[in-house]
């Protein structure tokens, strides 16, 4: 059986620290025996006590220190305990790390990744459940990635550091305990492969990768949910839905995402973010601009409600995007023409 996502991430960090003696990992409560709030950093500080540090509760300060290490030519990975708290590091990300790559009139490499455990469905309440990706969309010099069960995190993290641009890696908290997919197999019906020049986009299909009634684009945190919706659509509604999961959310890899969307002519973009100024809206803009003539329906967006995220499970469900919402959206888009 394939490893769990949290194990894959943990092994990725072990490998990166082993490969690069100039890499430092910083975060709150990341050292052993605790090993991080979600145990992603377990074992790292025992092997590299000097390069894996637990820090004070100072998200802005930690990301600043990491930016300083990167400025000095080193690499740094920061763990933010809950991605809600990355708000406290916004200045360092917006005004230092990302700007420094260009604002001095020449390219300055900043090898920095900020890891952000993200999302709801765990009953942690309004300030521990958010999906803050949208707040970082469109910052020059900053890339946004999201962990998925299809993308090996060693490749993703090494790739992010190699760009010399700072990046945020969002990690859906529910995903941690689920298993990675392996060998191109999702289940007895669905297959997957990684497409695009950097094998950045996971494509999940049934029967024929060139054929679909609708394309469903989701970030990694929704990948498993999207696959289960696609399965239901196939079995219950006879709708063939192809799922695309880009590892890099921003900048959008339009060249890889657009051809399958153009072929299907119908697309739904789903994400857990609350309404307003979403990643999906940006993606929809690109699709409308480049594929207007090829679309059989406008891009359909699915996201959580315009609301704080409640704690109690029965209330949380009324706000966060549900499988049924995605299912309904695809059905409406497919039957709408």
């Amino acid at each position: 059986m394939a490893e769990r996502v949290v194990e894959n991430l943990n092994q990725a960090l072990h490998a990166l620290l082993a490969d690069d003696p100039g890499l430092t990992l910083l975060g709150e409560d990341v050292v052993d025996p605790y090993g991080g709030a979600f145990k992603v950093t377990r074992g790292l500080s025992t092997r590299w006590p000097d390069r894996v540090r637990s820090t004070p509760l100072s998200e802005g300060g930690i990301v600043g220190v990491a930016g300083g290490l990167a400025l000095a030519g080193q690499s740094a990975i920061v763990e933010i305990m809950f991605s809600d708290f990355v708000a406290l590091a916004f200045d360092q990300i917006l005004n230092f790390a990302s700007k420094s790559t260009a604002m001095y009139g020449r390219r300055v490499p900043i090898r920095l990744v900020v890891r952000c455990p993200t999302g709801g469905n765990r009953g942690y309440g309004p300030t521990h459940s958010q999906s803050p990706q949208k707040h970082f969309v469109g910052i020059p010099g900053l890339s946004l990635h999201e962990v998925s069960p299809f993308h090996d995190n060693r490749t993703v993290l090494a790739g992010m550091l190699a760009t010399g641009r700072p990046g945020l890696l969002f990690e859906d908290k529910v995903l941690y305990t689920t298993r990675m997919y392996a060998d191109g197999v999702v289940d007895e019906l669905f297959r997957y492969d990684l497409i695009g020049p950097d094998a950045d986009v996971a494509r999940i299909w049934v029967d024929d990768p060139g054929q679909a009634d609708c394309v469903l684009v989701v970030p990694g945190g929704l990948a498993a949910r999207a696959v289960s919706v696609a399965r239901e659509l196939l079995l219950r509604d006879d709708i063939v839905c192809q799922v695309l999961v880009p590892s890099r959310l921003w900048p959008v890899d339009a060249d890889t995402l657009l051809p399958p969307i153009a072929r299907a002519g119908r697309v739904v973009v789903a994400e857990e973010s609350t309404a307003g100024g979403t990643w999906g809206a940006e993606l929809a803009h690109v699709v409308h601009q480049r594929l207007w003539g090829a679309l059989r329906a406008p891009v359909r967006l699915v996201h959580s409600a315009d609301s704080v995220i409640p704690t109690a499970a029965h209330l949380e469900r009324t706000v966060l995007v549900q499988d049924a919402d995605i299912h309904r959206a695809v059905k409406e888009v497919v039957s709408g023409d």
Partner: peptide
């Protein structure tokens, strides 16, 4: 903003 950045440089 530079103070934590400088602390990171000082760590290096």
């Amino acid at each position: 903003e530079s103070a934590p950045v400088a602390a990171g440089v000082a760590l290096h």
